[in-house]
Design a protein around this nucleic acid. Structure first.
Lengths: 229, 229
DNA sequence: CGTGGGGTTGATACAGTTCAAGATACGTGG
DNA sequence: CCACGTATCTTGAACTGTATCAACCCCACG
């Protein structure tokens, strides 16, 4: 890894307070690597070789069962993934693949466990990371169990609108089949649900969506800070 | 807390390797308390006052939204709950109530964060705990998204059968409305799904269930080590 | 012996999936 | 720059899964 890259990595929350020697130990064994879209990084059922961090691009977490596949989450920078499997050295429960071209930091799992045991600051940062990710999955489970598919879509729109700058527009930067799966519905249903939401002030304007009446959409979506965000 | 109790707590995985001074610090502020069934221990949206550990009995984790309620998990001894909220000092994302009479160890959140910062063994144990819980929620999410309600019930039966001693019987020790919600279905649907499973060798024998043809049930349920267990 | 809560059953309605066909967009090569 | 072929998305119709509402049953308990 080059100096500029290593300096960038040093600023990540996970490494900020780690002591110099331990940081070097982690980073000297690590790779910062670019991947084209569609590359499988992790396969569920395998033991994890690396702790992964999305530095750039998009990564999709997904899982398969009985010839069905579902998207569990879509990660953006700077998210850590499969921390639990790495720490416990147990098989990954989900697969990961790049959605867009991505840059991923790969830290060998043994180095992570090793430094984790000796560096309290790293341990704390990792716990924090783990806790954040844990709460994300909890929210997803609640989203699935407490809302129907149209409500999930409506709330996703509200979150995306905020994330993309509160300008009442949402660019669809992932393809619709992926989004549909992430939201727990079929692509056909996503189409129909979007059509449904025109009743609540959502319209298609070319490649992206416009929210013309955000109050109406909010009233329908019933956003909840204990599920969304 | 009495000496006998404190000795019991000392044997919990979370405290096993904590140094004596820190253990005392945690335990001297803690309560080991008995609760009757139906007592709400935690309300979602509140900041956590204590890290909880089920020492005896059953605790139900649930969440509400838009006048609907869903059971997220049912905890048995010796499970830690709301570790993520305690560590991050953020609002709880789920509520908890006793299902059966229960004994709960309550450790004040500030003490947990405090010792966590100074005791590496405790930090490691807590991370481990967090990682275990994290993986449970991941499994639940996959279960919800990749299976229909009859399959969820079938797999729950297989797991319970194993947990209750592999003797082809499953005692229903929680009421059916709670089980239904935990499995993501209505009580009516649980009834119908159970009836469905008679095709696969499941029968009711009084208060509990019998699995007469476990191979048939397995064939239908398609258990998956990356979802169940 | 009634009363009530939990459980079951039936009828119906709604949500969501599936399959098939059509529309639209997009990149490629002529 | 257009024509074509392929991807992706949309629409429609039929079907399956699940929820809802209402009636009924059953047993425990006063």
């Amino acid at each position: 890894m080059r100096q500029a890259e290593s300096d960038l990595v040093r600023t990540l929350p996970l490494f900020k307070d780690v002591n110099e020697k331990h940081f070097y130990e982690l980073i000297s064994a690590a790779f910062l690597q670019r991947f084209p879209p569609g590359v499988t990084l992790i396969r569920e059922g395998n033991l994890p070789d690396f702790l992964h961090i999305v530095v750039e691009g998009k990564v999709e977490l997904f899982a398969s069962h009985d010839s069905h596949e579902t998207v569990l989450d879509i990660l953006e920078p700077l998210t850590t993934f499969i921390p639990a499997a790495v720490i416990r050295d147990e098989v990954c429960l989900k697969s990961a693949r790049t959605l867009a071209a991505a840059q991923i930091l790969l830290i060998p799992a043994p180095a992570v466990r090793d430094v984790f045991d000796r560096d309290a600051a790293f341990a704390r940062a990792l716990v924090n990371e783990l806790a954040v990710r844990y709460r994300c999955v909890e929210r997803s489970l609640k989203n699935e169990k407490l809302r129907n598919s149209t409500e999930r879509l409506a709330n996703w729109l509200l979150q995306e609108e905020a994330r993309q700058g509160n300008n009442r527009r949402v660019a669809l930067d992932i393809d619709k089949r992926t989004l549909a799966s992430r939201l727990g519905m079929t692509p056909e249903n996503l189409s129909r649900n979007l059509a449904q939401l025109s009743k609540h002030g959502v319209s298609k304007s070319g490649a992206d969506l416009a929210i013309n009446d955000i109050d109406s959409l909010r009233k329908f979506a019933k956003p909840n800070s204990l599920i969304d965000q």
